[in-house]
């Protein structure tokens, strides 16, 4: 059941942009001119071709990130969970003619089937299993960073760290980007918050007012950088900033920025 679900989600995710991403790209295309507008129109035309012909939107069909919310009332029977997830990924990447992009970091030998997937499991209250599939391209992943700020740096330090990550990335992560931000937690959990933020719809506001105001201020300062679509210059350097927050240590203020290219692919199912 998990394997089939991951298979379906992976296959769908590789060939379609999310609706909120398409809407944001259309809005952006209307306000840009010249090479920036040309880039956005090409991206939208590509999206239509991919949907029509069931082709991967982008050849970087990504590292398979699977976020699993597992209700504490659920008993999973059968094969090992990670094996079921990898099996779904393996079948989807073969069936969809997706690129297999996973290799050994030292020998660079490809695993040949895009496994292993990166599986994160959260045990929650309830009787459901929510499966979220996020194929993560590395042009943008490479531009991600974590800053271990001091508490004194505070809100301004957070906004500055977000904007600086986008500025340093420049034209490389395929702007207009979506900026996933993690605030708090620890050196390991903070980037995961940033990645989870990327599964939120574009245009959604964080329920906490102080977090939402950081999202807004960071976005407006990012647009002022002028990097623009594909780095060709323009008003749209980012399609959105999405932040998540978690308690941290009294001595620290971790801020992680997980960069996502304009090709936002994310699919979800509740079992």
């Amino acid at each position: 059941m998990i394997s089939d679900c991951v298979f379906r989600l992976a296959l769908r995710a590789g060939t379609r942009l999310t609706d909120d991403c398409c809407a944001a790209l259309r809005t952006a295309a209307e306000r840009e001119t010249g090479a920036a507008r040309y880039a956005l129109c090409t991206i939208l035309e590509n999206r239509a071709i991919a949907a029509r012909e069931s082709m991967p939107v982008c050849q970087d069909t990504g590292m398979a990130v699977v976020l699993l919310e597992l209700g504490n009332g659920v008993v999973l029977e059968g094969e090992l969970l990670s094996r079921a997830v990898d099996d779904g990924v393996r079948r989807a990447y073969a069936e969809g003619n997706f690129r297999k992009s996973i290799c050994d970091p030292l020998t660079r030998v490809n695993t040949g089937d895009n496994t292993p997937a990166h599986l994160h499991v959260d045990i929650v209250e309830g009787d459901h299993v929510r499966v979220t599939y996020l194929p993560k391209g590395f042009g943008s992943e490479n531009m991600s960073r974590i800053s271990m700020l001091t508490p004194a740096e505070g809100r301004e330090g957070i906004v500055r760290a977000i904007v600086e990550a986008v500025r340093l990335a420049g034209s490389r992560p395929c702007p207009p980007v979506v900026v996933g931000v993690g605030i708090g937690g620890s050196f390991d959990s903070c980037p995961l918050l940033a990645k989870k933020a990327l599964t939120r719809p574009l245009g959604s506001r964080h329920p906490r007012e102080d977090v939402a105001s950081i999202e807004e201020e960071a976005l407006s300062r990012i647009q002022a950088l002028g990097i623009g679509p594909q780095g060709f210059g323009g008003k749209t350097t980012a399609l959105g900033v999405l932040a998540e927050i978690a308690p941290t240590h009294i001595a620290g203020l971790p801020v992680a920025v997980n960069m996502q290219c304009h090709c936002v692919r994310c699919e979800q199912e509740v079992l």
Partner: peptide
């Protein structure tokens, strides 16, 4: 080339 326009 326009990044992300893989199908095209």
């Amino acid at each position: 080339a326009i990044g992300g326009a893989g199908a095209l």
